[in-house]
Structures are given as structure tokens and as C-alpha cells.
């Protein structure tokens, strides 16, 4: 297990390194931030001073080495726009996005698992047909449109929920959290549901097909032949087997939810990382873009590791070992 973890960490570092090169070169290729950042009225002297201050006068490979040197000391550069450490900027926005993402994942499991279970156990009933039709909608309706509709119905017409922002926040460990206040919950509800819609459909379909597959297995029939109650067969014998694919997908989706909640954050003016990255791309704020992507990569690596470890908990046949 320890060897396995060490190997995984080493692999992760390699991925991080490769990622940083790709992003660095990629952003450099998109355009020159100088054109956007420095006012057109500035004279030649001011221009050169500014370029030197941002470190943009060096050739690309030297810029990268400087970046790498600083990164090893935990400094991912300063934002060109905000003149703040890029990492600090991202971490400040992170709680908002994490709240949104975890809220959405929580909803998708809370709603998706029971519905999928029902649809899998009674595949021919009217209820499960309605669920499956609904899941197609969840897959195919565009997020921004659903978001706008939610705002129109619940915020504009019914006036039940606020349409934008995070509401009241509570400060813990220097970060702002809104899930600790009732007002924050009100603000979180709609964006989280909007973000969850796709994932609810995903979990429903995954659970349903898992259940239908498991119900045909001999071990389920054997469990019934032992005279177990249908409840025990479903919630112990079937459920534990379908959790394996569900955990995988939910784990991977969590990463992409955090990374790509951009649309929902924009529609609901949710001040998270997604909004930050869109703004930064618009002004070619390279340190922020690079730092953001590094944080995201790190997060994916961590989530994958956790999913792998969860696997070995759920499925005894999986043992985390380093094979030669």
C-alpha cells in the first residue's frame, strides 16, 4: 500500500510537470497579454518597463524556468490584472465552487440513486418510464437554458429563491463559506440543482443498468433461494455491487464539475473559480490560467486516488499493490 501510494505520487508529479509545460506554451501561443494589459497611450519607455516588470521580456524557455523555480517554492506567479498571487486568488474563489460542486454531487446521488434503483427493479412500470424519459431531458437540455428557466420561474415569477450571488457567508479558516447560513442555502439551491441535473440523469442511468445486470446474476437468485427478504437482497446483495461503477463515475464527475462549472457560475453570477478563469482567459492573465489548471490537475489526481482507494474498500477482489 505504501509503495503503491509513493508510486502514485511520483506519477502525479510527472503529470503536473507535463501539464505545466503544455499550458505555458499553449497560453503563450494564444496571444500577447501586453496588447491587452498596457494602455495604448503608454510610451515606449513605459511599455518596456511594464514588460520587464511582468517578466515578459525573457525568451519563453527562460520564462518557464523562472516559473518552475518559483513554483517549487509554492509561488505560482502574480496575476497581471489583480497584482495578487495567482494561487491566493484561486484559493479565495475555491470555497464557492467547491460548495456548488459538492452540493450538485450530493443532489445527484440523493436523487439519482433511488430513482435509478426504482427504474432498475421495476423496468416496465409507468414510473420508471417517466424517470427514464426525464433523464433524457436531463442529458439533453442545455445547462444555461435550464438555469435561465429556473431563475425565471423560482426567482422572477414565484420569488422564492434569490437569482444570483452567494448570500451571507461565514468565515472559517480565513475562507468564506455560505453553506453555514440559511440565506446561503437559499442562494445555493438553484445553481446546485442546475449543475446537478446532468449528473442526476447520469446516476439514474448508471444505477438502473447496474441493477438490471445484477438482478440477472446467479448470486441474486441464490440470495433469493436462501429465503432472504427482497429488501435485504436489494439493499445488500445488489446495492453493494452497483456502488462500484457509481463511485467511479461520481468521482470523475466531481472533478469535471469543479473544473467546468463555468456556465452555471456565469448564469447565476456565482463568484467561483469558473468565473475567474473565464475572465482571466479574456485578458490573457497567464499566471492565473496556469495556476488554475495546475490546481485542477492536482485535484483530478487526488480524486482519482481516492476513487481507487474506495474501490478496494468496496470490492475485495481489488487490492492496491504495485505490480512489478
Amino acid at each position: 500500500m505504501t509503495v503503491y501510494l509513493l508510486r502514485r505520487i511520483l506519477q502525479s508529479l510527472m503529470v503536473l510537470l507535463a501539464m505545466s509545460v503544455i499550458v505555458f506554451v499553449g497560453v503563450y501561443a494564444i496571444g500577447d497579454p501586453v496588447e491587452i494589459l498596457i494602455s495604448p497611450d503608454a510610451d515606449q519607455m513605459e511599455r518596456e518597463r511594464a514588460i520587464a516588470a511582468l517578466g515578459l521580456d525573457l525568451p519563453l524557455w527562460q520564462q518557464y524556468l523562472v516559473f518552475l523555480q518559483n513554483a517549487l517554492r509554492g509561488d505560482l506567479g502574480r496575476s497581471f490584472v489583480f497584482n495578487e498571487p495567482a494561487l491566493q486568488l484561486i484559493l479565495n474563489r475555491m470555497p464557492a465552487t467547491l460548495e456548488l460542486a459538492f452540493g450538485a454531487m450530493f443532489l445527484s446521488v440523493l436523487i439519482g440513486l433511488p430513482l435509478g434503483l426504482y427504474a432498475g427493479l421495476k423496468p416496465d412500470s409507468v414510473g420508471s418510464r417517466v424517470i427514464m424519459a426525464g433523464s433524457i431531458l436531463g442529458f439533453s437540455l442545455p445547462t444555461f437554458w435550464v438555469g435561465l428557466m429556473l431563475i425565471m420561474v423560482f426567482a422572477v415569477q414565484l420569488g422564492w429563491l434569490p437569482s444570483s450571488g452567494r448570500g451571507e457567508t461565514v468565515q472559517i479558516l480565513g475562507l468564506h463559506w455560505s453553506f453555514l447560513t440559511a440565506n446561503g442555502w437559499m442562494h445555493l439551491a438553484m445553481p446546485a440543482f442546475n449543475l446537478a441535473l446532468f449528473k442526476i440523469s447520469l446516476v439514474i442511468r448508471l444505477t438502473r443498468s447496474g441493477v438490471r445486470e445484477a438482478m440477472l446474476m446467479d448470486y441474486v437468485k441464490f440470495a433469493r433461494a436462501k429465503g432472504l427478504s427482497p429488501t435485504r437482497v436489494t439493499f445488500v446483495h445488489v446495492f453493494k455491487n452497483i456502488l462500484i461503477p457509481v463511485v467511479t463515475v461520481v468521482g470523475l464527475e466531481l472533478g469535471s464539475t469543479i473544473a467546468f462549472s463555468v456556465v452555471t457560475e456565469t448564469v447565476f453570477a456565482w463568484p467561483g473559480m469558473g468565473k475567474l478563469i473565464i475572465d482571466s482567459i479574456n485578458v490573457l492573465d497567464r499566471p492565473v490560467i496556469v495556476a488554475y489548471l495546475m490546481v485542477i490537475v492536482l485535484m483530478f489526481i487526488t480524486i482519482n486516488l481516492i476513487v481507487d482507494i474506495l474501490y478496494s474498500v468496496l470490492d475485495p477482489r481489488v487490492r492496491l499493490e504495485s505490480k512489478a
Partner: peptide, 17 residues
């Protein structure tokens, strides 16, 4: 009334002790 199945590889639930 008890029943024993054909394929012992499939009759026991793989994720339960």
C-alpha cells in the same frame, strides 16, 4: 427447501464475506 446452483463461481456474492 434449499437449492444448490450449477456454477459455484457465480452463486456467492463477490463483494460480501
Amino acid at each position: 427447501i434449499a437449492m444448490i446452483f450449477q456454477d459455484p463461481m457465480m452463486t456467492l456474492n463477490p463483494v460480501l464475506r
